[in-house]
Amino acid sequence: MLEVKDITMRFGGLTAVGGASLKVDKGRIVGLIGPNGAGKTTLFAIIAGFLDPTAGRVIFEGSDITPLPAHERAKLGIARTFQIVQPFAGLDVRENIAVGAYLRHARAAEAHAKAEAVARRVGLGGDLDKQASSLTVAGRKRLELARALATEPKLLLLDEVLAGLNPSEIRDIVPVIRAIRDEGVTILMIEHVMQAVMNLCDEVYVLAQGKMIAQGTPREVCVDPHVVEAYLGKGAADRLRAEEASHA
């Protein structure tokens, strides 16, 4: 469904992403993990059309969408959420979600009905008339998700929707994400909360210093020496193995 081919993104002398590739198959939840500053959000911005890559291509459903602007990609069915939530602060929850719903529903009544349905689905049904600015962090994350869902995407890009939530809030929202996938939406998610990654993802890519260093099931990736080193420093994998050997 989505294929990212050899994406390179340079900001002046800094290479944020260097030749990264990934593939997301229809109907899956794919995770993108990596240490801070690895270039995950940059890669997301390129997929969603917010940044033009220095090199490389983005293929969506078989066609090259690299030159398309963000709003055109949204029309094709790519929706993203923002790591730092971006609510329309002056509007209430219903109006916020309706902006997304208007993408496929021209009439106000339909868009509002759609917005209410989506709000109930992500657990914001009781907050429809609240100002977006009065929501809690968890509420804003849900709103971010709801707005993206209201565009009726085929591919949903979730940028750390679980960050900043407490364990019980995470427990509440994980089934929501799984339900979205079960309804036929393919998901690519950046996530730091490993418990959720292990739980949700069918496949995980690991980005470190702009390069894809590993790929596989969550379990495979966790024990990959390259990944351990990317997070804990060079030689960490060997030390861990040596320690385990001495304990045995």
């Binding site: 602007p69 959420t81 329309f88 902006v99 707005r147 565009t151």
Partner: peptide, 8 residues
């Protein structure tokens, strides 16, 4: 930015 992400 958010508007663009929603297809505006």
């Amino acid at each position: 930015e958010a508007a663009r992400a929603l297809g505006v």
